[in-house]
Design a protein around this nucleic acid. Structure first.
Length: 445
RNA sequence: CGGGCUAUAGCGCAGUUUGGUAGCGCGUUCGUCUGGGGGACGAGAGGUCGCAGGUUCGAAUCCUGCUAGCCCGACCA
């Protein structure tokens, strides 16, 4: 993309409405624009990141054997009356009437809808296990939306639902989600810690929240430092192997890690003092096993091997995709702007032409642009007639992890500069080497 | 929902106390110079002063009502 042809309304000054760093940076980098309290338009750059995260979530869900679908945003109140949650959910549910006066709602979650789909079409244990998920906009009418997309009213979320014949099978599904979520966050360049959680209004006993450590997090968290050293790395996971999934869950849930809701100071103080950590965290996902809480009242049953109808065991699992955009920025920025991890960056590399209009600089940039594009290293080429400082400032703000700087000075020696946004370190390379270097960097991502 | 605050050009703000028909910085447009970290000079464009009503010869400014947004708290993927 050529910046002169793009839509990137960056702001030089901090908007008054934004208090926390990710909100400020998303506004300044031209990623979002507030439509009304807690509701945002996603401008091209922000949309690109959002889509990128969505893609990663999809890939990891499919890898775990889960099946994508799409349910609507608007739902009929009838199903929610069946589950009993129409009254329980309270003011956070946005309730609407259609022209016939029928009660509708903008879905804050989809347990009822998915259960309705399940009971209509699945009748036998032979159809299990089944895990369906979708990534869709949700709405919760927060009393006080804030922090930009981190706590908006409208948000984009992956929610998945597993259906299993018994508790053991459902726990396997729970563990599978645990592992797939760990992989998902790791791919995004995030350290997200599973913490024992409170089940809240959704209900159920077995639940973990995934938290990204950040000063601006809404929850206070306590954990054993040992958990920070855990990594899935390139581990080959067989999601059908219940024992392997359980072992990984065990590995990640053995070190103490809890939010203030479930914190137990006796257990915490049993950890060696030097490993006792407390900080703040942003919740970016949660997994639940809730048994037959919905299947029983809503009659979602299957015939077991003996021919008896039994309610299915279910769980639900969510990843806050739009919130993750903010969380990643909270965890990865400096005073100049955002620093995108390679896996989620909107463009893989920025090209800065230091002297737009200079025949050699222009030609070198054009050649690089074509070459990078051909190699799938999607570049953002700043071809505006701006001065160097302005171009650097824009690149730093929007946070592309790599920058190639092209100017007459370097071109005299046939070189361009490849700079890491994170470390600030630069290297002078001939253009072909710079491209090769980037290919290497992005090869495994 | 309790408490506090704000609303003036695309963004950040001054002007409101003491009423006289709106200003600064950034951005933006044009031109010239410049060209390795938000450059300089010159010339422009851009505002129903959140909305409605009232007081007044006259309202951004005073009064009443409303709306929207922000902050703290409670709450929360």
């Amino acid at each position: 993309m050529r910046l002169s042809r793009y839509f990137l309304p960056v702001l030089k000054e901090n908007p008054a409405e934004a208090q926390i760093v990710s909100h400020r940076l998303m506004l300044r980098a031209g990623m979002i624009k507030q439509a009304t309290a807690g509701i945002y338009s996603w401008l091209p750059l922000g949309f690109k990141v959002l889509r990128r995260l969505e893609d990663i979530v999809h890939e990891e869900q499919v890898r775990a054997g889960h099946i994508p679908m799409l349910m609507p945003t608007l739902q009929s109140a009838d199903l929610w009356r069946e589950s009993g949650r129409y009254d329980d959910y309270g003011e956070e549910m946005l309730r609407i009437k259609d022209r016939h006066g029928r009660d509708m709602l903008y879905g804050p979650t989809n347990e009822e809808l998915i259960t309705d789909i399940f009971r209509a079409h699945v009748g036998s244990y032979k159809d299990l296990p089944l895990t369906l998920y979708h990534i869709q906009w949700k709405f919760r009418d927060e009393v006080r939306p804030r922090f930009g997309v981190m706590r908006g009213r409208e948000f984009f979320m992956k929610d998945g639902y597993n259906f299993d014949i018994d508790q053991d099978a459902a726990i396997h599904a729970y563990d599978r989600h645990m592992v797939s979520y760990l992989r998902t966050y790791e791919r995004m360049g995030l350290k997200a810690i599973p913490m024992r959680a409170d089940s809240g209004p959704i209900g159920g006993d077995n639940t973990h929240e995934f938290l990204v450590l950040a000063e601006t997090g809404e929850s206070e968290v306590f954990y054993d430092r040992a958990i920070l050293d855990l990594t899935l790395g390139g581990r080959d996971v067989d999601y059908n192997d219940a024992a392997q999934c359980a072992a990984i869950k065990e590995e990640w849930t053995t070190p103490y890690a809890r939010t203030d809701e479930t914190h137990d100071s006796d257990l915490f103080n049993a950890i060696p003092a030097e490993r006792r950590m407390s900080s703040r965290g942003i919740e970016v996902g949660q997994i639940f096993y809730f048994g037959t809480k919905y299947s029983e009242p809503m009659g979602a049953t299957v015939a077991n091997a003996e021919g008896e109808k039994v309610p299915v065991h279910m769980g639900s699992h969510g990843i806050g995709v739009s919130r993750l955009v903010g969380a990643i920025i909270e965890a990865s920025h400096d005073d100049k702007g955002i620093i995108w991890p390679e896996a989620v960056t909107p463009y893989k590399v920025g090209i800065v032409n230091l002297k737009q209009g200079d025949a050699e600089a222009d030609a070198a940039c054009e050649a690089l642009y074509k070459e990078l594009t051909a190699k799938g290293l999607e570049p953002l080429y700043d071809d505006r007639a701006e001065r160097a400082g302005a171009k650097f400032a824009t690149m730093d703000l929007i946070g592309l992890p790599w920058r190639i700087t092209v100017g007459p000075r370097g071109l005299k020696n046939g070189v361009v500069e490849l700079t890491s946004r994170r470390s600030g370190e630069s290297e002078e390379l001939v253009p072909a080497e710079a491209v090769a270097r980037l290919q290497g960097i992005y090869a495994g991502i």
